[in-house]
């Protein structure tokens, strides 16, 4: 098992390297001279020269990549050309609200999605299954930002139960923070909950039709034991993968939902940066999101090994 975990970690390294190269090249792929782009339309020739020096654009590409990576490890992400602030400081203020939103939304998704999926999958065509079908259809059919707008209209504009915009740190004022968090978390999490529920349902329903489940029943095992030990364990393997992969869906949801509720965070940071052509900020935000995502995939692979002994041997 240890060897398996170690091997997976080793395999994650080239993925990280590839992804970082992709993000690094992104700025170089933008048509035109990066230094002139970063300096903006008002940039003087000295600005361009300074940026060229700062980015090391006179060196070869591999040299640039290595020094860029070195800077990142030292926490030096450069200076935002649109706002004149260090990118690392902009990220430090943008990350906490997004993490709060993502964690809250993930809780909503898992607590609602998995149990509903299991209940629907064990008894297809039952009341639970119809509840599940209705829920997933509505939840997947109405994307987070549309749900957000509708909730904003009903609960904030009409009923005035929740604030219309903004965020408060959970450390400063937990109650107010949760009031700001409630609607965005539901808007972001419900879609992921539906995906989890639907996936859990499908795999469980499929597993329940397998011969070994019939065998387990024929042996006279209690239904609960058949479900938990035989069906659930086998059907959870793909579900765990999907759970980890949904971290991406969640980040995507958070990016858009932050815009609906005018919440500060990584999403608003990156959207504003793209609109302002603030390439370094976009680059840094992407490298963070990508690292989180690769970490989640790694976690899925390792969990896979724990749940399915056959995977370890491969």
């Amino acid at each position: 098992m240890l060897a398996y975990v170690f091997a997976r970690f080793l395999q994650a390294i080239p993925v990280l390297v590839l992804a970082s190269i992709a993000v690094f090249l992104m700025l170089r792929l933008v048509p035109g001279d990066p230094a002139e782009l970063l300096a903006g339309q008002d940039g003087t020739d000295e600005d361009v020269a300074r940026i060229r020096e700062q980015l090391g654009l006179n060196d070869s590409l591999p040299e640039q990549y290595v020094s860029w990576l070195g800077d990142i490890f030292q926490g030096d992400l450069g200076v935002s050309f649109a706002r004149g602030l260090p990118v690392s400081r902009m990220l430090r203020t943008a990350i906490p609200p997004t993490v709060e939103l993502a964690v809250a939304a993930y809780l909503v998704a898992v607590v609602v999605g998995i149990p509903l999926g299991i209940l629907g999958g064990i008894r297809p065509r039952s009341g639970w299954d119809w509840t599940l079908s209705g829920f997933t259809l509505v939840a997947i059919g109405i994307p987070g930002f549309l749900l957000g707008i509708i909730m904003l209209w009903v609960f904030s504009v009409r009923l005035d139960w929740f604030p219309v915009f903004g965020a408060v740190s959970i450390v400063d004022d937990p109650v107010e923070s949760l009031r700001h968090l409630a609607l965005p978390a539901v808007a972001t999490g419900v879609g992921v909950a539906a995906v989890l529920a639907r996936y859990t349902r499908t795999t469980i329903a499929e597993v329940m039709g397998n011969d070994y489940v019939r065998t387990a029943r024929a042996k006279g095992l209690a239904e609960s034991r058949v479900v938990v030990r035989h069906a659930l364990r086998n059907s959870m393997i793909p579900v765990v993968t999907v759970m980890a992969l949904q971290v991406g869906g969640l980040l995507v949801g958070a990016v858009i939902v932050e815009q609906v509720f005018t919440r500060p965070g990584l999403g608003r940071l990156v959207v504003n940066a793209i609109q302002a052509r603030d390439y370094l900020v976009v680059q840094s935000t992407l490298i963070i999101l990508v690292t989180v995502f690769i970490g989640a995939n790694l976690a899925a692979d390792i969990a896979y090994g724990f749940l399915d002994p056959r995977v370890r041997g491969r």
């Binding site: 991406g248 793209i274 390439y279 992407l286 690769i294 995939n297």
Partner: peptide, 29 residues
Amino acid sequence: EAAAMRLVDALLAFPGLIAALAILNILGP
């Protein structure tokens, strides 16, 4: 397989909208 799947992982590391944002950043909106 290992190489192709790591490449796919690297692509998957840019989930939907994130990939789209990167591409919009390069090609312009």
